[in-house]
């Protein structure tokens, strides 16, 4: 089941927020059709590194990124790369569900409309339906596509956000603690969904829950104080970590 061709390669990545050195010299290869989990204590830089992959850090004026990040061998920080196009290719789901104050349909159709992905209305309907099915929301939402997305429950909202990201047919899906605002049942649904999504996308998920990382991911990276401490097969990281810091974290001694 493992596909070891690296989708994303990062070499010597440094991130500075003003004077703070948030990410220190991170090298990582993220495989295609794999779920990769970033774990680590709060403030360790895992979300920051995630936001480098779709250049969301560009929207923060004081943030500065150095180093080399390639997707399919293409340097995404190259001057010729349009960050706006990049973000269509690298979808993102945020910590708190953030549906737009629009109808469910318009939420999902947002990306395709902006990027002109549909030929006509019927085509767009198809994209929306397909995305909602991928996000396991179609059955619940098909009868109320005109209802506001903000009227859904928290778990449904998060799946709507996943559908919204999927609708632009990205290659990589970044998830920044997607379940931290959800209850256990909604979390289980999202986790199941992540497992299915990996068939089409490279999924990178930041999580605070080590159980979640163990459940959904094949690879795990442990960040600590801006350093990538250890990276490898999830099963190995959780059973026989090499670094003492990793061991302390997953056994609950630090964190």
């Amino acid at each position: 089941m493992q596909n070891d061709t690296a989708k994303i390669t990062a070499r010597g990545v440094q991130v500075y927020y003003g004077d703070t050195h948030a990410i220190k010299d991170v090298d990582v290869d993220i495989a295609a059709n794999t779920v990769t989990a970033f774990i680590g204590p709060s403030g360790c830089g895992k979300s920051t590194f995630l936001r480098c992959i779709n250049r969301m850090n560009d929207t923060i004026p004081v943030a500065r990124v150095e180093g080399d990040i390639r997707i399919d061998g293409e340097d995404i920080y190259d001057k010729r790369v349009d960050p706006v196009q990049l973000r269509a290719k690298v979808g993102m789901v945020f910590q708190k569900p953030n549906p737009f104050p629009k109808s469910i349909y318009d939420n999902v159709a947002y990306g395709p409309r902006i990027h002109g992905l549909s030929k006509d209305k019927a085509d767009l309907d198809g994209i929306v339906e397909n995305a909602l099915r991928r996000a396991a929301l179609w059955d619940e939402a098909k009868d109320r596509l005109d209802a506001p997305g903000t009227g859904l429950s928290g778990g449904q909202q998060q799946r709507l956000c996943i559908a919204r990201a999927v609708a632009t047919s990205p290659e990589v899906l970044l998830m920044d603690e997607p379940c931290s605002a959800l209850d256990p049942i909604a979390t289980a649904q999202i986790e199941e969904l992540i497992d299915e999504l990996k068939q089409n996308y490279s999924v990178v998920i930041v999580t605070h829950s080590m159980q979640q990382a163990a459940r959904v991911s094949q690879k795990t990276a442990f960040f600590h104080l801006g350093n990538l401490v250890e990276y490898g097969e999830t099963s190995r990281i959780f059973t026989s970590p090499e670094d003492t810091r990793t061991e302390s974290y997953i056994s609950g001694r630090i964190g």
């Binding site: 196009q85 973000r87 979808g91 708190k96 953030n98 990201a165 632009t168």
Partner: peptide, 15 residues
């Protein structure tokens, strides 16, 4: 307007 709205839209590749 919450920053999450902006992030959500920018994250989808909107200008």
């Amino acid at each position: 307007v919450p920053q999450a709205m902006r992030d959500g839209s920018l994250g989808l590749g909107a200008t």
